[in-house]
Design a protein around this nucleic acid. Structure first.
Length: 252
DNA sequence: AGGTCTGTTCAGCT
DNA sequence: TAGCTGAACAGACC
C-alpha cells in the first residue's frame, strides 16, 4: 500500500525518464485520467520532455520546462512500472512512451490512482519527511482528534498512511486514541522523531510493510518489544493495532 | 460463490 | 470548523 516511502521510490523511478521526448501517451482510462476529456493529457504532453520529478507526501508530479505539469497519485494499490519490469501490463491505467524507447506506466489494479494535468496540491500539508519540529507541534499537537486520525490527515502533514501511522505511534510509545491537544511537547517531538526514523527505515528496507509492527499484521499478533497481545480497534476510520503495555493511554 | 476486508481521497454531513 | 462517515474501485481472502 503506497505511503510516503513507496511514493518516494516511485519519484526516484520517475527521475529516470527526465530529459526524454514524449512520443506517446495512453490516457484512455477516463476514470484514472482526469479531467475526463479524452486525449486532453495526451495532447498537452506530446512532444514535451520532463525536467523535474517532484513529490509532496503521496502526491507526485513531473514538470515540463515550459509546458504543463503531469500530476500522479498511486492511490491504494498503484506503482510506477518501467518497461523493463517483467510483469505484463494488465493493469496499466496510464502510460507514456519516450523517443528512446523508454516507457513508464501507472500500474494499478484498483483504479484508485490518478493522472491529472497541472495538479493543485495547495491544500496538502508539509511533507512528513521534512516537517520541522515547530511545525509538527503546531499541526499535530492541537485539537481533540485522536492522534492517529491527525497523522492520517494529509492537510496536517503529507505522506503518512495507515500502516506508517501505527508503526510510528508504536515506536514513540504513544497510544493512537490519545487526543492531539493532550500530548506533551516531549511526546510530540518523540513522535516526530520516530515517524521520520520509521520512514527512513521503510525507504531503505523496501516499503512500509517492513515495519516491525506491520510485518505480521493480523489477528493474534504480539508486541515485538514486550510480547503483550496487541489491541485492534477502528480509530480514525481505519483498522489500528497497538500495544496496550508499551503505548499507555496517559502521558509519559 | 458470496461476503468481507483492504487502504487513500473526497464529498457531504453534523 | 473540526471531525466523522461512506462512496469510489476491484482484487485478495475466507
Amino acid at each position: 500500500m503506497p505511503e510516503l516511502p513507496e511514493a518516494e521510490r516511485a519519484r526516484q523511478i520517475l527521475e529516470s525518464v527526465l530529459g526524454r521526448r514524449v512520443t506517446a501517451v495512453d490516457d484512455a482510462d477516463d476514470y484514472v485520467c482526469r479531467p475526463h476529456q479524452r486525449g486532453e493529457i495526451r495532447s498537452a504532453l506530446l512532444g514535451h520532455e520532463f525536467v523535474r520529478a517532484g513529490r509532496r507526501g503521496k502526491f507526485l508530479w513531473l514538470d515540463t520546462a515550459d509546458g504543463p505539469t503531469l500530476g500522479l497519485h498511486l492511490g491504494m494499490a498503484g506503482r510506477i512500472a518501467l518497461d523493463s519490469d517483467a510483469e505484463r501490463p494488465h493493469w496499466d491505467r496510464f502510460a507514456i512512451d519516450f523517443a528512446d524507447g523508454t516507457r513508464f506506466a501507472l500500474r494499478d489494479k484498483r483504479r484508485l490512482g490518478r493522472a491529472v494535468l497541472n495538479p493543485d496540491i495547495s491544500h496538502v500539508g508539509p511533507d512528513a519527511a521534512d516537517i520541522t519540529r515547530a511545525d509538527f507541534r503546531e499541526r499535530v499537537g492541537r485539537g481533540a482528534a485522536p492522534v492517529k486520525a491527525r497523522l492520517l490527515d494529509q492537510k496536517a502533514l503529507a505522506g503518512v498512511g495507515n500502516l506508517l501511522a501505527d508503526e510510528a505511534l508504536w515506536r514513540a510509545r504513544v497510544a493512537p486514541a490519545r487526543a492531539t491537544g493532550e500530548l506533551s511537547e516531549q511526546e510530540l517531538d518523540r513522535l516526530r522523531r520516530e515517524l521520520r526514523a520509521a520512514m527512513r527505515d521503510a525507504i531503505r528496507d523496501g516499503g512500509v510493510h517492513t515495519g516491525l509492527l506491520i510485518v505480521d499484521r493480523g489477528r493474534g499478533q504480539r508486541c515485538p518489544r514486550c510480547s503483550a497481545a496487541l489491541e485492534r480497534e477502528r480509530i480514525g476510520g481505519r483498522t489500528t493495532f497497538w500495544c496496550p503495555r508499551c503505548q499507555p493511554e496517559a502521558p509519559v
